[in-house]
Every structure is written in structure tokens, then in C-alpha cells.
Lab assay of single mutants.
Amino acid sequence: KELVLVLYDYQEKSPREVTVKKGDILTLLNSTNKDWWKVEVDDRQGFIPAAYLKKL
């Protein structure tokens, strides 16, 4: 499984997104879309802008 580091706080703006904090380490589920990556946060799955994440 691939992990990503959150570079900036992000507040979800729709039900398909998730809220994260800078410094969080998340499981990356899908990065095929270059703009929005799907991650897992506390048993929730959702999207975050790829620019907010860095692969570890």
C-alpha cells in the first residue's frame, strides 16, 4: 500500500472529499487522476487535491 503526506490543511467542500491536516500520513487508494487523489482517512474514503499531497 502506498502512503502520502499531507502538505497543507484541507477542508472538504463536498461529500466526496475528506478533511485532512498538514502532516497527516494517509493511505493512497488511487492517483490515476492528476488533479484529485483518492485517500483513506479514519475508515473514510474520499478525494483531496493532488497538489496537497506528496507520495512517500
Rank of each mutant, 00 (worst) to 15 (best):
K22M: 08
F47Q: 03
A50D: 01
K34G: 11
W36N: 03
P15L: 11
V4M: 03
V41I: 13
D43I: 09
L56D: 02
L5G: 02
D9K: 03
K13W: 05
I25F: 05
I25V: 13
S14I: 04
L5R: 07
K54G: 05
T32R: 12
G23Q: 02
N33S: 09
L5T: 06
T27C: 10
A50H: 04
E12A: 15
I48P: 00
E40K: 11
V4R: 01
Y10N: 01
S31T: 09
A51L: 12
K55D: 03
E12W: 09
V39E: 00
V18A: 05
G23V: 01
R44I: 08
V4E: 00
E2A: 13
D42M: 14
K13E: 08
R16L: 13
N33T: 06
L7T: 04
K21V: 09
D9I: 02
T27N: 09
V18G: 02
L28H: 01
Y52S: 07
D43E: 13
W36P: 00
L29Y: 04
R16C: 15
D35K: 14
K38A: 10
V41Q: 09
R16Y: 15
I48K: 00
G46L: 09
L56F: 09
L28W: 01
Q11T: 15
K54D: 05
V4H: 01
L3D: 04
K34C: 11
Y10T: 01
D24R: 13
L26G: 12
F47V: 07
Y52Q: 04
L7H: 02
L53R: 00
N30D: 15
R44W: 10
K54R: 15
A50N: 03
I25M: 06
N30F: 07
T19G: 05
V41H: 12
T32N: 13
E40C: 12
D24C: 08
V4N: 00
V20I: 05
V41N: 11
P49Q: 04
Y8F: 12
D35S: 14
S31I: 06
V39A: 02
W36M: 07
L26R: 03
R16E: 11
K54Q: 14
V18Q: 02
W36S: 04
S31L: 04
D42R: 11
V20D: 00
V6G: 00
K21Y: 15
Q45M: 10
S31E: 12
W36F: 07
T19E: 03
L7D: 01
Q11C: 12
V18Y: 04
N33E: 09
L5Q: 08
Y8P: 00
N33C: 11
Q45W: 09
D9A: 07
Y10I: 01
L53Q: 01
N33K: 07
W36E: 06
W36A: 03
N33Q: 10
K1V: 13
S31V: 06
E17A: 06
D42P: 08
I48T: 08
K55M: 09
K1M: 12
L28M: 03
Y52C: 09
I25Q: 04
P15K: 10
L3K: 12
K34L: 11
Y8I: 08
L56V: 11
L26H: 10
G46M: 10
N33H: 12
K21P: 01
F47C: 11
Y10A: 01
D9F: 03
F47Y: 15
I25R: 05
A50M: 06
A51P: 09
K22L: 05
W37M: 02
T32Q: 12
P15A: 12
Q11H: 14
P15V: 09
K38P: 01
D43W: 09
L28F: 03
K38N: 06
Y52I: 14
W36V: 04
L7S: 02
S14Y: 07
R16P: 06
R44A: 06
G23F: 05
R44D: 04
R44H: 08
D9V: 02
K34H: 13
W37A: 03
P49N: 04
K22R: 11
V18T: 04
A51S: 15
V18S: 02
Y10W: 09
T32L: 10
D43F: 11
W36D: 02
V6Y: 01
K34N: 12
V6P: 00
N33L: 09
L7G: 01
W37E: 00
L56E: 03
T19R: 05
V20F: 04
G46W: 07
S14E: 09
K21E: 06
K55E: 05
K21F: 12
V41C: 10
S31H: 10
R16S: 13
S14D: 14
N30V: 08
E2L: 10
Q45P: 06
P49E: 03
V18K: 02
L3G: 03
E17V: 04
I48Q: 00
T32V: 11
T32S: 13
K55Y: 08
L3F: 15
T27P: 15
Y52P: 01
Y10S: 01
E17K: 05
L28P: 00
K13G: 08
E17G: 13
G23H: 06
E2D: 11
K13M: 12
K34S: 12
Y10F: 06
G23M: 03
F47I: 08
L56Y: 09
I48D: 01
S14Q: 08
T32I: 10
S14G: 13
R44E: 05
S14R: 10
E12V: 07
Y52W: 07
V6K: 00
D35T: 15
D42S: 13
E12M: 15
V4G: 04
V39P: 00
K34R: 13
E2T: 13
Q45F: 08
E40R: 11
P49M: 04
V20R: 01
L53I: 07
P49T: 01
P15I: 10
D24P: 00
R16W: 15
K1C: 13
L29K: 05
E12D: 05
A51K: 14
T19D: 03
E40T: 08
P15C: 09
K54M: 15
D35V: 15
L3V: 08
T32G: 10
E12H: 08
K1Q: 13
A50I: 04
V41S: 11
P15D: 13
V6I: 04
K38I: 15
Q11Y: 14
R44P: 00
R44G: 06
K13T: 12
L7F: 02
D9H: 06
V4A: 09
V39M: 01
V39C: 08
W37P: 01
I25P: 00
L53V: 14
D35C: 13
A51Y: 14
D43Q: 14
L56P: 02
G46S: 04
D35F: 15
P15W: 09
S14L: 08
D42C: 12
E12I: 10
K1Y: 13
P49D: 02
D24Y: 08
V20H: 02
L26M: 04
G23A: 03
F47M: 08
K22A: 13
L26K: 01
I25H: 04
F47R: 03
I48F: 02
L7I: 08
A50G: 05
T32F: 10
A50E: 03
A51E: 09
S31R: 08
L7A: 03
L26A: 09
E12N: 07
Q11A: 11
V6D: 00
L3Q: 11
G23P: 00
Q45A: 12
G46H: 07
K38V: 12
V20K: 00
I25Y: 04
P15R: 08
V4D: 00
L7V: 07
N30M: 10
F47H: 06
K54A: 11
S31N: 08
T27Y: 13
Q45C: 10
L7R: 06
G46R: 05
K34P: 15
K13P: 05
V41L: 10
E40D: 07
L7K: 05
N33P: 05
L7M: 08
S14V: 05
Y8L: 10
V6H: 00
V4T: 03
Q45N: 09
Y8V: 09
A50F: 03
K55V: 12
L29I: 14
V41A: 11
Q11R: 12
T19V: 03
A50K: 08
L26Y: 05
Y8D: 09
